[in-house]
């Protein structure tokens, strides 16, 4: 078992605790012990805190980085990943690495090892959403193509799902940069444009790798519904999908926290595609 530290941020523990649960579960199944980062604070996000005071952003971020001596700090949020990655780069600590679970799974764990651990393949039709700060700015991130990435698509396929192409795949969710927090109407207008092409594709869910995107898609759809625009497409974090494929029961995914959910998705997650057949 390899050890690392898990930095969960704000939105995962306080809006989608199921993502935190599934992160610990799935990583342990793959042979990694993640220690919770005790005493951590908000990362803090570049779009809000760095936009107001760069020194404050840097000081809070480096405090989080200094809490543990481990080589690897794992994240499951694009915003936390961006802040900790950049602050670590600027603080010049070459020993420490900041990782995002998706690129770690693809690059360090590998598809074969993931497939070998799957006990329930999930025959879902999904729309993947990479989010912005996992891939960009690409000169620093070096995760995948900033315009035409593949890592999340193949990770989704590794658990038996189909990733469907859609025209707004690389469009921002509209929630980042303080837009959702500061100007909700703008965030919802971007969201509406993002989701419109999905209407005719009949996907079972959207798969994200960032809880801020997840929150914007999940709660944003309820807000759009109140304005008469209905999509009703549930949103899962990849860790929730992975943990289900590894055998975690549905009650432990924290789906009650999701405001947009369908019986169709829950049924498919429950049943999967039985391996014995």
């Amino acid at each position: 078992m390899k050890e690392m530290v898990f930095y969960p941020g704000c939105v995962i523990p306080n809006r989608y605790p199921g993502v935190e649960k599934t992160m610990y579960y799935a990583m342990e199944k793959l042979g990694y012990i993640m220690k919770p980062m005790e005493g951590y604070s908000c990362c803090p996000p570049p779009g809000i805190v760095r936009s107001v005071d760069e020194e404050l952003w840097f000081s809070l971020a480096t405090r989080n980085l200094s809490l543990y001596d481990d080589r690897t700090i794992m994240t499951a949020c694009n915003g936390c990943f961006a802040t900790l990655f950049d602050a670590n780069r600027l603080s010049g600590n070459g020993e420490r690495e900041i990782r995002h679970v998706v690129e770690f799974l693809y690059r360090d764990v590998g598809l074969e090892k993931i497939k070998a651990r799957v006990t329930k393949f999930l025959p879902l039709k999904v729309a993947v959403h990479y989010g912005c700060h996992l891939l960009r700015p690409s000169i620093y991130r070096e995760v995948d193509s900033p315009e035409n990435p593949v890592i999340l698509d193949v990770l989704v396929e590794a658990v038996g799902a189909e990733s469907v192409p859609y025209p707004t795949k690389m469009v921002c969710c509209g929630g980042g940069g303080g837009v959702r927090a500061g100007h909700r109407e703008v965030a919802l207008e971007i969201l509406k444009r993002k989701l419109t092409p999905l209407k005719v594709l009949n996907v079972d869910c959207i798969v994200v790798v960032c809880p801020l995107c997840q929150h914007q898609f999940d709660v944003g759809q309820v807000e759009l519904k109140n304005e008469g625009v209905n999509f009703n497409i549930p949103v899962l974090h990849y860790s929730q999908l992975l943990a289900t494929a590894f055998g975690l029961e549905l009650e432990m995914l924290g789906l009650e926290a999701h405001t947009t959910m369908t019986e169709n998705l829950q049924e498919k997650l429950e049943k999967g595609e039985d391996l014995e057949q």
């Binding site: 649960k21 604070s41 924290g254």
Partner: peptide, 25 residues
């Protein structure tokens, strides 16, 4: 709270149900 997005009571309840500790600042 040490958090830009602090927990609500429902979040704390769900964390308990899932067996998650509260370990932030």
């Amino acid at each position: 709270y040490g958090m830009g997005v602090p927990p609500r009571k429902s979040d704390i309840d769900m964390r308990r149900k899932l067996g998650l500790k509260n370990y932030s600042a």
